[in-house]
């Protein structure tokens, strides 16, 4: 018989077990525990209910709960996996994990597909891309002529919409991303590889007890 090591992590009532979450993600158990401290802090900033609502998410990101930002809204909607208008701890960790350098390209590709499929139709439609483009231009106070936007959309769909049905399906998106890998650049946050070192300020009680049996 060899010497077995078991990991005893804290239990968080009402939230998923950190060991289970670590086993499903690229985060270690101690990193998941550190993320719990962060989650707790964000989730009690407006309503102390153990869940992150959109205002709390915006407040954490921008220090302003009313700031409108389309990209942040979309990220919140995707983190809100259960579509309840709030993010629970398990979904917070699993969603952050997609941005981890060690997460698979498949996960990142799928996340970006859902990011642009704003109406959840299973396709990225021209109207959705146009809406996002215009909203981001407005937020950036940049101006592009309508004709220029249409040309950009024409060329994009000519390249990505291989079957020419006016919308981009999942397979078409995967192929398009393979040809344009820069589109996944926003999906990898290098600092997630070592969050407890990069952001020591949010780590309080995250030590893990290693018990030899």
């Amino acid at each position: 018989m060899g010497c077995l090591h078991s990991t005893a992590a804290r239990e968080y009532p009402g939230h998923e077990n950190p060991v289970k979450l670590a086993s499903e993600t690229a985060f270690s158990v101690s990193e998941v525990e550190a993320l719990y401290e962060l989650f707790k802090s964000i989730s009690c900033s407006v309503v102390d209910d153990g869940l992150i609502n959109k205002e709390e998410f915006q407040l954490a990101l921008f220090k302003n709960r009313k700031k409108e930002n389309l990209f942040a809204n979309r990220i919140f909607d995707l983190f809100d996996v259960k579509r309840k208008g709030v993010i629970d701890f398990g979904d917070f960790v699993r969603s952050l994990n997609v941005f981890h350098p060690n997460a698979s390209l498949e996960e990142k590709t799928d996340f970006t597909f859902r990011l642009y499929d704003m109406d959840c139709t299973g396709y990225i439609e021209r109207q959705e891309v146009k809406q996002m483009l215009i909203a981001l231009l407005c937020e950036s106070e940049m101006k592009l002529a309508d004709d220029t936007i249409e040309v950009i959309l024409d060329q994009t769909f000519e390249d990505a919409d291989v079957d020419g049905d006016g919308k981009i399906g999942k397979t078409e998106w995967s192929d398009f991303v393979i040809k344009n890998p820069s589109l996944l650049k926003i999906m990898t946050l290098p600092y997630l590889r070592d969050i407890t070192t990069t952001f020591p300020s949010f780590v309080f009680n995250s030590e893990v007890d290693e018990i030899a049996t």
Binding site: L59, F62, I75, Y116, Q155, T198, F199, F202
Partner: peptide, 25 residues
């Protein structure tokens, strides 16, 4: 060079940074 709509969106959203979450304490 052809600049596709998604590259455009990615570049414009580059100011969005989840790292702010970690500095929220």
């Amino acid at each position: 060079k052809f600049f596709n709509a998604f590259e455009f969106i990615s570049s414009m959203s580059s100011g969005f940074d989840l790292s702010s979450l970690f500095e929220s304490k």
